[in-house]
């Protein structure tokens, strides 16, 4: 806004000077000057012709750099900081109020298969990529305020360089894993009526008594869609940044970066909550992704409809041809 006012001021000054020019040997301000002032007013780059191969150099002035700077240094830092620190604060309060969510009635000792080895492997591929992408990304936003004073400039450059390399290359297994995730789990993540009841009952997180739920409850479905859709947005914008100026120009690069980093920090905040509830926050949850076998009581408590489905599958299954009725021989 300030730029625009200044530019407007310049136009007015030129206007005032015009009569003086008209009388003497002076000439009117040239078309190019007007072009420049118009561009400043509308916030567009001042663009010309250049005799070197690098056509990006034909942009004489790009005022958007200022907005991008404001975004990167102020907006992103605040949004990211508030999202991540805020989520940690919420989780701390939640922990103090609710404590670790126990398995009601304790462990049964019997287990049921929740995720097979491919599902678990894929989950950990995405998760480990995500963590490294998140840390190396946050390092670009906050590292120079947090890490640089601790380790010094030389070590910090080394860390940031490898972080950047990791960020750029782990993007590929991360995206691949997202595609597998989508294919594996979408059928259990379509929102339905059970989700509305689950949400109305506060998901069992507030109050007591856990509402009914299928293989994934509404909260987990939310995590799924945030991962898939947010991940897709982060991946597309990220690839624009990995292949600079291949798909777009300077403004497109700035926009890609804005979309990428804002969605990324919000996803990080969501994943902090996901990690908490999947590990230390809830008794019996982490086994789903380690051994793949969860305790039956845990499963009944959190995913009763799914347990019934699985059990029904077992009951309804046709016996093998070699099976004989009990006591038949």
């Amino acid at each position: 806004m300030k730029i625009r006012i200044l530019a407007l001021f310049a136009v007015l000054m030129m206007g005032a000077a015009l009569p003086a020019f008209a009388q003497g040997t002076a000439r009117e301000p040239s078309v190019a000057d007007e072009m420049a002032i118009q561009s400043l007013l509308t916030g567009n780059p001042v663009h010309g012709r250049i005799t070197i191969p690098d056509q990006r150099a034909a942009n004489l002035i790009q005022p958007q750099g200022r907005e991008w700077r404001e975004f990167h240094n102020v907006t992103l830092a605040w949004v990211g900081g508030i999202a991540v620190v805020g989520m940690l604060a919420i989780l701390t309060v939640f922990r103090m109020v609710r404590g670790r969510i126990p398995i009601e009635g304790g462990r049964s000792g019997r287990t049921i298969q929740r995720f097979n080895v491919f599902e678990r492997g894929n989950h950990w591929m995405v998760a480990s990529c995500f963590i490294i992408l998140a840390l190396s990304g946050l390092n670009l936003t906050f590292g120079r305020h947090v890490l640089l004073p601790l380790v010094g400039p030389v070590a910090f450059t080394e860390i940031s360089h490898w972080g950047k390399m990791a960020h750029n290359f782990l993007a590929f297994p991360f995206t691949l894993g997202l595609v597998f995730m989508l294919l594996l789990w979408i059928k259990d993540n379509i929102p339905n009526g059970t989700d509305i009841r689950w949400l109305k009952a506060g998901g069992g997180l507030v109050g007591h008594g856990e509402p009914e739920s299928g293989r994934f409850n509404a909260g987990q479905k939310g995590i799924f869609w945030i991962t898939v859709l947010g991940g897709a947005a982060v991946a597309v914008s990220g690839y624009m940044l990995v292949f600079p100026f291949f798909f777009t120009d300077i403004q497109g690069m700035q926009l890609s970066h804005i979309v990428h980093s804002i969605i990324a920090v919000l996803m990080i905040a969501v994943m902090v909550a996901h990690i908490y509830i999947g590990t230390v926050g809830m008794d019996g949850a982490v086994e789903a992704m380690t051994t793949g076998q969860v305790d039956l009581n845990w499963a009944k408590q959190h995913h009763n409809l799914w347990v019934e489905e699985e059990m029904a599958k077992g009951r309804g299954a046709a016996p093998p041809a070699s099976a004989k009725a009990a006591g038949a021989d």
């Binding site: 040239s30 078309v31 190019a32 000057d33 007007e34 072009m35 420049a36 001042v46 663009h47 010309g48 012709r49 250049i50 005799t51 070197i52 150099a57 034909a58 942009n59 004489l60």
Partner: peptide, 15 residues
């Protein structure tokens, strides 16, 4: 670098 604005038109300018 030298950028030419309004190349070949009235009021051409190089910067």
């Amino acid at each position: 670098r030298v950028v030419t604005l309004n190349d070949g038109k009235p009021g051409e300018r190089s910067v």
